[in-house]
Every structure is written in structure tokens, then in C-alpha cells.
């Protein structure tokens, strides 16, 4: 049977995508040092648990989806996924392998629990997906990991509520556990933490709220599901609402988890960055 080994969270800022290839030379750069220093323990954990599949909750920032047809929840069911330059020259990286068989198992399973996902047999993945993959599997070492993108709308309100995203994660968790293949699955929540890109309030960061989220998500995630989207916009900034992606990840994991590693840093670009490594209860 399939087994969920744990979950990872990370910010996915495009600036990181540009810096990742230069990680070694930036190791002692005052701006990047603290940020990159947080990642080796997460990579060591991945080396230890050796997942076969990575499921990524992320948000498309206007690469694959436009306002002509905007799904709330979309899942990839493709044999591979590619990124693109997104309009400002993000480097294109080797394609990410898919796992259509597991994708369809999830699609069918969660539909029985009243989650009706938009299914994508072709899907470009943007920095929300490609940056975390590059951070956790550096030097494009993700060749042995099959991926499944789960995209959640954070572009156009109404966004799905924190509670709904958490419940989707729980349904996907049950789907994985009912998958008969002997595969190990890691789940990623990407984005956040507090940031705001638009309006006169651009540049807003809320360290106190971020640290509360990073604490509660470990063993009391239900507390965070009581927030509304507008609460998140107020406390985490307009784009800090991406925290729903972390909650979807957390929903997949078991009730109790063990925190292996965490890091919080203000800031890269306009964004407070957060990293978590959570191991599922055996």
C-alpha cells in the first residue's frame, strides 16, 4: 500500500528560482546565506525517506490559467510537466515526471468525497511548483521522483477557504492511503508566508502571525482552519493568503506529526520565507 512519509513547506518566490543555480557562490552572500542554510536538513530528510512521489499544492500565477476559465482546484494528470519563462525570463528546467495513474486514483477517490477537481492532461507549472522542486532536489536531481501538481486558485476571489483546503488535503490523504501500489509519498505546501505585492500596503510583513501559523500548523492545524480568507489577507497580506496551500498539505498528513526541522526568515524579495519538515506518525 502507498504510504505518506511526511510533508514539506517552502516559499516559492521567483527570485529564489534565479538564485538556486548559484547556491554555492551565494552561500556566504549576506542576503542569501541565512535562506539557503535552512535547506540542507530538509534535503537530508528526503535522502533518508526516499519518496517515490511528490504531491505539490501550489498556486498558478497566470502561466497555465487565465481568467477566461479559472478553476478553484485543478490537478495534473499528465506524464510530465514543464515550466516556462513566465514573462520575465525565469530559466526553463528539465521536465518533471508525472504519475497519471496515481493522479486518476486521487481524482476518482476525492470525487466520492464531493471534491470535484479540474483535471489537466496538459499543464504548464510555474515558479510555485518549479522553485520548491529545485530547492528540495538541487541541481535538477528530481529525476527519480514522480510529481503531481495540485493547483489552488489564489488569483481571483472568492478563494477557497482555509477549512475547505484543509479538508481537500484530508480527502487526498485518504486517497493516497487507499492506493494499492507500494509507493512512498511526500506532500509539499508551497508559497507564503506573509507578503503583499499590490496596493499602497505593498511590502506588508507580519512576523508575529507567521510564527503563530508555523507553530499551530504542526499539531493544532484546526485552529488555523477557523480563519477566513479575509482574515488571512488582513493578517498575512493580500498574497499571504497562499497559506491555504500549506493547510492543504497539512490536511494530507496524520493527526499527529513530528517536526524534524523549521526555519523562518525575513525576507527574500517582498516575502517572509518559511520552511517546515514534518514527518508523519508511523
Amino acid at each position: 500500500m502507498a504510504r505518506i512519509v511526511g510533508g514539506l513547506t517552502t516559499s516559492h518566490i521567483p527570485a529564489i528560482g534565479n538564485a538556486v543555480p548559484r547556491e554555492k557562490e551565494l552561500a556566504h552572500d549576506p542576503y542569501w546565506e541565512e535562506f539557503f542554510a535552512a535547506y540542507p536538513p530538509a534535503r537530508e530528510w528526503l535522502d533518508r525517506v526516499k519518496p517515490d512521489v511528490a504531491i505539490l499544492f501550489y498556486n498558478d500565477h497566470g502561466l497555465n490559467f487565465f481568467l477566461n476559465s479559472m478553476p478553484t482546484f485543478a490537478i495534473g494528470a499528465a506524464p510530465e510537466y514543464r515550466n516556462a519563462d513566465e514573462g520575465w525570463g525565469i530559466p526553463t528546467v528539465p521536465p518533471f515526471k508525472g504519475d497519471p495513474k496515481l493522479s486518476w486514483h486521487i481524482i476518482n477517490s476525492v470525487a466520492r468525497e464531493n471534491f470535484d477537481l479540474t483535471t489537466c492532461q496538459e499543464m504548464l507549472v510555474d515558479h510555485g511548483f518549479s522553485v520548491p522542486m529545485q530547492l528540495f532536489w538541487p541541481n535538477h536531481s528530481y529525476g527519480n521522483v514522480r510529481t503531481i501538481p495540485v493547483e489552488i486558485n489564489t488569483v481571483q476571489h472568492p478563494l477557497p477557504s482555509p477549512a475547505r483546503c484543509f479538508a481537500l488535503g484530508q480527502a487526498i490523504g485518504r486517497a493516497i492511503e487507499s492506493y494499492p501500489e507500494n509507493v512512498k509519498v511526500v506532500v509539499l505546501g508551497t508559497g507564503g508566508l506573509s507578503h503583499q505585492l499590490d496596493g499602497e500596503r505593498a511590502g506588508f510583513i507580519n512576523k508575529k502571525f507567521d510564527l503563530l501559523c508555523m507553530d499551530k500548523i504542526v499539531n493544532e492545524p484546526e485552529v488555523l482552519t477557523r480563519y477566513s480568507i479575509h482574515d488571512l489577507v488582513r493578517d498575512a497580506g493580500a498574497q499571504g493568503a497562499e497559506f491555504i496551500l500549506w493547510l492543504a498539505m497539512r490536511g494530507v498528513l496524520s493527526h499527529k506529526v513530528r517536526k524534524i526541522h523549521s526555519s523562518y526568515h525575513v525576507a527574500i524579495s517582498n516575502t517572509a520565507t518559511g520552511l517546515l519538515v514534518l514527518e508523519n506518525a508511523a
Partner: peptide, 28 residues
């Protein structure tokens, strides 16, 4: 009003801004 300097991109904004956003989307 409660969060000054913040604009919620909702259905009304999405209709108003459709042409502008569609042009910017083309810059992919």
C-alpha cells in the same frame, strides 16, 4: 475599507480589468 491600501481582486475587478489582464497574460 478595513485594510487600507489593499484591493480584493474579485468578480467585479476581474470583469473591469479583463482586457488589461488578458494583454498582460499574453506577455508569457
Amino acid at each position: 475599507e478595513q485594510i487600507p491600501g489593499t484591493y480584493i481582486f474579485d468578480g467585479e475587478a476581474a470583469m473591469k480589468g479583463y482586457a488589461l489582464n488578458k494583454m498582460c497574460y499574453s506577455f508569457n
